[in-house]
Amino acid sequence: MAALTIFCAMLLAGSALHKAMARERLAAAASRLVGASPALGPVLLVLAGAVELIAAVCLLIEPLRVAGGIAATVLWAGYTLMLVRRRGETLDCGCDLNARAKPVTAVLAARPAVLSALAAFVSTLPAAPVTLDAPFAAAGLLALYLGASELLAIPRPAWRTV
């Protein structure tokens, strides 16, 4: 189960890095998502990125893993609530690596909800040694997650009914 913990930490750290690299775009997205003034966007972005980075580090340090899991659970639950509140609107929520204005649907809100549940699950796991295969399994999970995210970004595919 160490792979799930490492996956969550990698996703959180990657999200924090993404916020640092695409500050302008994501600050605007953060203020729109929260419904705050655009001037507050950079503050919200730094706050979210800091929580993501702290949670990622905590997940990798065994005595702090539970605290990291709880922080990630609360953060992703917050993202879920903000997306649900914006359901039906079209905006760039900052959920993807690329700038894309898209309708906020139940599927889009389900992603952080599932991640929140996963982080809650990770915080309840007993301590497990990190074996050599765990980081590779986590990297594979991250690749699958990012690939699924790109598939969900395809506008009106024939195979999607939601």
Rank of each mutant, 00 (worst) to 15 (best):
A3N: 07
F7A: 06
L12A: 13
K19D: 14
K19S: 12
K19L: 11
A20P: 04
M21Q: 13
E24K: 14
R25D: 10
R25A: 00
R25I: 00
L26E: 11
A28G: 10
A29W: 09
V34D: 05
V34Y: 12
V34L: 13
P38R: 10
P38W: 13
A39E: 13
L40N: 03
G41C: 01
G49T: 03
A50T: 15
V51C: 04
V51G: 05
E52I: 00
I54H: 08
A55W: 09
C58M: 14
L59A: 04
E62T: 10
E62C: 00
P63S: 07
R65W: 06
R65N: 04
R65S: 13
V66D: 08
V66N: 10
A67C: 07
G68N: 05
G69F: 00
G69N: 03
I70N: 06
A71R: 01
T73G: 02
L75Y: 13
L75A: 06
W76T: 08
T80D: 08
R85P: 03
R86L: 03
R86S: 00
R87D: 07
G88C: 06
E89N: 07
E89M: 12
L91A: 04
G94T: 01
C95G: 07
A99G: 03
A99M: 03
R100K: 14
K102C: 05
K102A: 15
P103C: 02
P103H: 12
T105P: 01
A106W: 14
V107Y: 11
L108M: 13
A109F: 02
P112K: 05
P112V: 01
L115I: 06
